[in-house]
Computed example of a mutant assay.
Amino acid sequence: MTEQGPEQRLLLVHAHPDDESIMQGATMAKYAAEGRGVTLVTCTAGEMGEILVPELEHLAADKDDLLGEQRRGELDDAMAALGVTDFRFLGGFGTYRDSGMQWHDDGHAIAADDIHENAFWRADLTEAADHLVRVIREVRPQVLVTYDEFGNYGHPDHIQAHRVAMYASLLAGAESYKRELGEAWEIAKIYWGAMSESRMRASLRAIRDAGDETTFEGMDPDGPLPFTTPDDQLSALVVGDDYVGRKMAALAAHRTQITLDGPFFALSNNQGNSVWGTEFFRLVKGRQGPLGAEGLETDLFAGL
């Protein structure tokens, strides 16, 4: 720890409230508890999300259109559960709206037919990146985490978050670029969040062996698995077994999106720490540090 703050600083860029808890909740809780800097930038308030709480269905976009405010509060509660105090919306709350999505016949997400004029998918890339450049130059993180180029499963906001994060990371390090946004800062390591294919197959197999055919219905542990990354593409894992409780509390805080009897908690009940306590990453910028468990880095700051 320095007078200016933590010596090691992690920046995460996500599309909607709840994405962070699903993908990296254990990592965020672990690093925050260890005194490392954790900053979350959320690009939209998730206004187009499906509402799983019947008494709150009136908040939907086609009704009162107040889901964004609800999810803003859910994010507050989730960050409290994870122990993260620095979290922001890209450009400020309401700057960009959830773009919505629909499912393609091939099983991945695509943009919705009707998109709001302020949808994140329509955002000017340089304008959106400049919002993030300002954050990068303020926080000065050594490590950035965001999605892969497909947004992990095709959601347009995930893809746009990837584009904005990657472009902003380049611009932020350019000495001559918009000095009014802060002093230039080069991010040493960039990771894309990932889900281990072998871990997901093992978890699904355990669920099916237990007689549960409804959790992640239609997904075959021995067939094609969207959302996952082949293990030979993984670079790092963070073992956060001691923080699974915090991660599950954060997931529960996103109550309009995640239910206690839904697939995330079914996975937890069947597999516990093995599925939610270890989170995986692909290194796409920077040099891989010393390897540990499973031949992967065990710390995103390894080698710095």
Rank of each mutant, 00 (worst) to 15 (best):
H116W: 09
R88C: 11
A109L: 14
Q142L: 05
A168Y: 00
E186F: 09
H254T: 02
L260P: 07
L283F: 04
E197I: 08
G5L: 02
D114I: 15
Y177F: 11
L12A: 13
F281C: 03
H131M: 09
E34H: 04
V139F: 15
H116Y: 08
R122T: 09
G303N: 06
D64R: 07
Y177R: 02
V133N: 02
A119S: 13
E50S: 12
I207R: 01
E50L: 08
L52D: 09
V145A: 05
D18S: 10
F227D: 09
D64H: 13
M1S: 14
W103C: 08
N118W: 07
L170G: 12
E57S: 08
A266I: 12
R72C: 11
R287K: 14
E180F: 13
L260M: 15
R137Q: 04
M195Q: 14
T229S: 06
G240S: 05
G35K: 01
F227Q: 07
E279L: 02
D261V: 11
G272N: 11
V284N: 00
R122A: 10
A29T: 03
M248D: 00
A253I: 00
E3K: 12
L90I: 05
V135Q: 12
M1F: 09
Q102N: 07
V139R: 15
R137E: 00
R36A: 13
Y177N: 05
Y31V: 01
R137A: 03
A78F: 10
S198W: 02
R199A: 15
C43I: 02
L283Q: 07
D114M: 10
M23V: 09
F89C: 06
T42V: 15
A210W: 10
A302S: 14
D77Y: 05
G240A: 06
I207F: 07
D209K: 13
A194W: 01
R88H: 12
H58S: 14
Q233N: 13
E50V: 11
G151E: 00
S235N: 05
I187V: 15
H104Q: 14
R205N: 11
I190P: 03
D299A: 01
P263E: 09
H116D: 15
